[in-house]
Design a protein around this nucleic acid. Structure first.
Lengths: 327, 327
DNA sequence: CTCCTACCTGGAACCGGTTACACACATCAT
DNA sequence: ATGATGTGTGTAACCGGTTCCAGGTAGGAG
């Protein structure tokens, strides 16, 4: 059905080998022949079959991307960073959501291998070391780290610290940390770091658990103030949870930031739009995605990496859910 | 490097053909042989190469998905619907963001073909008819329609109508419709339908333009009340824009919903979490994605479709950005 | 007039699966 | 005994590219 290289060869009156050489600018090809081939390609609207190419070369133009859940607004930003960078370099993405499930991660890793992907970007907690070395394809971790693997991530400890300090500077005395699922490493790190700072400062600290998802956030928000009615500062594990808590605060008649200050984490796009604007710790998600893609390409092209791990800075974004310093 | 079918064959003491037959449960295979092959597969941890398979069969297990921008929270929900359904049936997704750009749509369509995808789900405005028939692969439109192609979408006219009616029922008298980019068909349809209802009702109507993106929404929000300070009802083209407008209303000292009522469109997850909760027209995004995937698989398996177009119902979700009826 | 080299091209093998076909053997009815 | 039928298996061709290698021609050097 689709036109093949041999169709083009016939049309141009040459062999398939010659067409291939013209296509790839490899080996010799007379100028006239090249012209004829190019014309034939044009005429037949020929596009080489990547599958065939991939089979022979043992490598495709495909890169696998595993994210926990694209429905969580932090991850699409990562994904676009990865995609935009890779697209420019001729690669395409096979994408999979893992829901943080080991089984699904493995499943996708498996099928990536089956499709001869040349590289993988993944937000996964387990290194899957044997498997990864088995399939022998470069991988870059995104938003996660393990010792052995290249990784791009934002400084979670600094983020946690920053959130806690800014909260203290702004005068909250009874602070509730909304802790996300501690199996998710970066989330755990934020928590530890915030907690430590608050403890040392000697303020009253509560720890309250929540899922990271919309439903989970909503559910846990509804009982926060029953447990800790005197909370005057909230450190949320991500912006979604922060928005949910902010809602609950306002719903229960508390003023933000006068009665309760709130700081989120991530700086997803919506955080700027909600009212009051959400103060948060920004992770440069899009840039992280780009950087991961860049590093992956370097590995694919056998270039040496300056550093295995690339830690990007976080940043406190001051909006209206916190008071001005000194007020 | 990776183990091939011939490695397995050697290990099991049979030919590659036999292994293939066992693998695919096609043709005959003695029980003992089958056992030996299965053992060898296990032992060598063999996974068949999808690329080779795909080359011979002229069809892969890959499906292409084109979305305008996964960074817009409406689309990840669609994407997960598609992915979850397809994954269960053994298919994987190649994904691409088009930014509503014709050029990028074509580019992705092209590379999908090069990778022997067996089907495509796409949110695109142009039918690309010649191209699509060229590449001879079933396609299902998602959140978009053209006459000739199968499509899954929500009833935009009904949505627009509903939003307008609910706003009128709740007593707003000077209503501003925030109109999105009219090149995007569903967005245009919402607008037309709302506009028509409001006009007929004889209330004062303003039309104010905005992009659908976060930045665009933020930008246009900032001048809304300079243009139409007496607006007491806002019909937004999507929830992001609605949230931005709600922010601006509150920022300028207006109470929501007492002074200004706001209705969004989409019902993205965050709409439930913002304060006040955003009343909106719900599109069942996840279900739309699933449905599109289901229809695509039917087409792939040559089953007949009951209907070319599948229109899903929209629904008014009443939260706190609108007043109770009669107040 | 050789010989060497650079240029140009096609045949064939290969990547790793699938499948058409041929062949071998056993069983059973005639 | 004869052949039809059903099992079980291997050989080889094929999918559509890429690349190795061999062979042919032309031009320049010796």
């Amino acid at each position: 059905m689709a036109t093949t290289i041999r169709d083009v060869a016939k049309e141009a009156g040459v062999s398939a080998a010659t067409v291939s050489r013209v296509l790839n600018n490899s080996g010799y090809a007379h100028e006239d022949t090249r012209k004829a081939v190019l014309d034939a390609i044009q005429k037949l609207n020929y596009r080489p079959n990547e599958v065939a190419r991939s089979l022979y070369k043992q490598k495709s133009k495909l890169i696998g991307l595993i994210l926990p859940d694209i429905t969580n607004p932090f991850f699409p930003a990562l994904a676009r960073g990865v995609e935009d960078y890779l697209r420019e370099h001729g690669y395409r993405l096979i994408i999979g959501n893992s829901d943080e499930q080991l089984e699904q991660e493995i499943d996708y890793l498996d099928t990536f291998a089956q499709h001869n992907v040349v590289g993988i970007v993944a937000s996964i907690n387990e290194p899957h070391s044997d498997m990864l070395s088995d399939l022998n394809v470069p991988i870059v971790l995104l938003d996660r780290t393990v010792e052995e693997l290249p990784a791009v991530y934002a400084d979670q400890f600094e983020g946690g610290r920053l959130a806690a300090e800014k909260m203290l500077e702004r005068g909250s005395k009874e602070i509730t940390i909304i802790r996300g699922p501690i199996e998710v490493r970066p989330v755990y790190q934020r928590f530890v770091s915030s907690f430590q700072v608050l403890r040392q400062a000697g303020v009253k600290v509560h720890v309250f658990d929540s899922k990271l998802s919309f439903e989970g956030a909503s559910k846990s928000a509804s009982s926060l103030f029953e447990f800790y009615p005197n909370t005057d500062g909230i450190l949320a594990c991500n912006d979604i949870v922060a928005v949910a808590m902010m809602n609950e605060a306002q719903r229960t008649g508390r003023k933000v930031p006068e009665d309760v200050q709130i700081i989120g984490f991530d700086d997803i796009s919506i955080s700027e739009l909600v009212y009051p604007g959400l103060s948060t710790i920004r992770q440069p998600a899009y840039e992280m995605g780009e950087k991961a893609a860049e590093i992956l390409l370097k590995k694919i092209n056998q270039q040496v990496l300056d550093d295995l791990h690339c830690q990007l800075p976080v940043q406190f974004i001051e909006r209206q859910s916190t008071r001005k310093v000194g007020e």
